[in-house]
Simulated assay, not measured.
Amino acid sequence: MTKIREQARMRHPRHERRGEARLPGVAATVVAILLYVALPQQLLLAPRYVVPTLEVLLLIPLIAINPRRLTRQTTAFRFLSLALTLIIAASNLSALGILIHELLYAGVKDGRALLVAALQVWLTNIIAFGLAYWELDRGGPVARTQLPRDELPLADFRFSQDENDDAVQEVADGASISSDWVPKLLDYLYVSVTNSTAFSPTDTMPLSSRAKLLMSVQSVAALLISLLVIARAVSVLH
């Protein structure tokens, strides 16, 4: 069995793959931008289109560097991708802070609008942190597919595939050590969804201090939305 798995890795080495598709990352970013644009003006720190315009200006060169597949990683690409993710997350967290302030001190009466805004912030929170996990873990999406496994930076997350090699055959065959599997954007978005709903890790464990910090911030933000914002909006509806 070990010999068969080794032969499979030699036939399809991960660092010779075409790289992760560009479209999912672009789609997630565009959805986050549109959710921000649709927020009420009182939740925005700047005029409505300032932040989205900056995000689009960062996204365009990222697409130009890797238009179809994420195979090239330059210093500029790394800086722009991390900056874009940071802006999406920071602008959404600021909107959450303003929303909480409005609830506590402004006496918001429009419960329906509040529910919609809370949902927008919650969804953007999932996308923003999913993108952050995707960009940081093991050197980012380019490094995960283009570098040999023994050259990858230390992992920020431990997925179930990373420890399934001793399971039954049909499960073990999909494990990282057997198939040279690495996580993609959807895997990190799933981590983000579960962290925003369970307020804690589920099947994917954070390993690094920065991963634990990011998951803690996301969990607290999701908890505030659930307990304070939505609870207040429901009470206003009644």
Results as ranks from 00 to 15, higher is better:
residue 236 V to A: 06
residue 9 R to C: 08
residue 159 F to N: 01
residue 65 I to Y: 10
residue 24 P to Y: 02
residue 19 G to R: 04
residue 94 S to C: 11
residue 85 T to S: 11
residue 171 V to H: 04
residue 41 Q to K: 14
residue 163 E to C: 04
residue 140 G to D: 07
residue 3 K to R: 03
residue 130 G to P: 06
residue 88 I to Q: 06
residue 130 G to I: 06
residue 25 G to R: 11
residue 200 S to D: 03
residue 128 A to Q: 06
residue 181 W to M: 03
residue 175 A to R: 05
residue 77 F to V: 01
residue 117 A to S: 07
residue 106 A to M: 01
residue 126 I to M: 13
residue 66 N to K: 04
residue 157 F to K: 08
residue 67 P to A: 09
residue 106 A to G: 13
residue 75 T to Q: 13
residue 105 Y to A: 06
residue 8 A to G: 01
residue 76 A to S: 14
residue 141 P to E: 11
residue 221 A to F: 02
residue 183 P to I: 05
residue 151 E to T: 09
residue 35 L to Y: 05
residue 34 L to G: 04
residue 61 P to Y: 02
residue 169 Q to C: 00
residue 225 I to T: 10
residue 223 L to A: 15
residue 205 M to Q: 08
residue 173 D to V: 08
residue 98 I to P: 02
residue 167 A to K: 10
residue 163 E to Q: 10
residue 82 L to K: 09
residue 125 N to R: 05
residue 29 T to H: 06
residue 215 M to Y: 05
residue 217 V to C: 04
residue 202 T to E: 00
residue 152 L to N: 05
residue 20 E to S: 06
residue 207 L to F: 06
residue 167 A to N: 13
residue 92 N to G: 03
residue 123 L to Q: 11
residue 236 V to P: 08
residue 232 R to N: 12
residue 69 R to F: 10
residue 102 E to S: 15
residue 206 P to K: 05
residue 208 S to A: 04
residue 197 T to Q: 02
residue 178 S to P: 08
residue 177 I to C: 05
residue 162 D to N: 14
residue 53 T to D: 01
residue 214 L to G: 13
residue 82 L to S: 14
residue 154 L to G: 00
residue 216 S to M: 13
residue 150 D to H: 12
residue 182 V to K: 09
residue 192 S to H: 02
residue 236 V to I: 15
residue 83 A to I: 02
residue 10 M to I: 01
residue 225 I to A: 12
residue 209 S to K: 15
residue 204 T to N: 04
residue 79 F to R: 15
residue 200 S to H: 12
residue 148 P to K: 00
residue 233 A to T: 03
residue 139 G to Q: 06
residue 230 I to S: 11
residue 200 S to V: 02
residue 79 F to N: 09
residue 25 G to D: 10
residue 43 L to I: 09
residue 17 R to K: 09
residue 186 L to Q: 14
residue 100 I to W: 12
residue 28 A to G: 07
residue 40 P to A: 03
residue 220 V to H: 08
residue 21 A to S: 13
residue 136 L to N: 12
residue 36 Y to A: 12
residue 204 T to H: 02
residue 46 A to N: 10
residue 224 L to C: 13
residue 91 S to T: 10
residue 216 S to N: 14
residue 34 L to M: 00
residue 213 L to M: 15
residue 233 A to P: 03
residue 121 V to K: 05
residue 153 P to M: 04
residue 139 G to W: 06
residue 154 L to V: 05
residue 30 V to Q: 03
residue 69 R to K: 15
residue 122 W to G: 11
residue 73 Q to D: 15
residue 154 L to C: 09
residue 159 F to H: 00
residue 108 V to E: 06
residue 235 S to N: 12
residue 147 L to Y: 05
residue 124 T to W: 01
residue 62 L to W: 11
